[in-house]
Amino acid sequence: MSTPTAGTPGAAAHNGNVPRGLDWQVAVADRLLAGGVTVAAYVPDSRLDGLLARLGEHGLPLRSLTREEECVGYAAGQRIAGRRPVVLMQSSGVGNALNAIGSLVVPYRLGLPLIISMRGTLGERNPSQVPMGRATASFLGALGIQSFPMRRDSDAAGVTDGVLGLAFGAQESAALLLEPDLGGGREHR
């Protein structure tokens, strides 16, 4: 039996083209840690990579899972036990996650903070990313979940704290949308 090796994303072969240590990545990660987040469930994304690396460096358990819906289900299991999970995904995975959000997280009021790296919006050059990206906030809104776009480093602490407040305080899931203006994505590749 081999032992699990996953942990810090890309620890074995980090691609130097994927930026880490950006100001907003550090700020969001540090506010998640300050807000008592206990585990991060995610499907990888280039813009999320540095954020997750920062969380991992501070000892937060990171759970790379196979599908966004699975991240939501996993987080629901954590949340019902009173833990404070955060779920991170690319906007293209929101469609995969909707059933678990709409028929588990919302009716059970298991407030989850969702951090969504946006594709398909400003500057997107891949046509296949556009329909899901431009519909992300509408999909979530149709399930009653508020989305808060983040476009500047200076928004990071306030938006992160606010999303955590809704999720863990009001028990209402809420989404932080990481917009392309922040940098760190791959809209142009």
């Binding site: 289900g73 949340r79 588990l104």
Partner: peptide, 20 residues
């Protein structure tokens, strides 16, 4: 932890709960 819907998510929920 009875799921009333969310077909396909029960094992993920169990994994999260087990770790919690």
């Amino acid at each position: 932890f009875y799921l009333g819907a969310a077909m396909g998510s029960a094992l993920a929920a169990a994994l999260g709960l087990a770790e919690a």
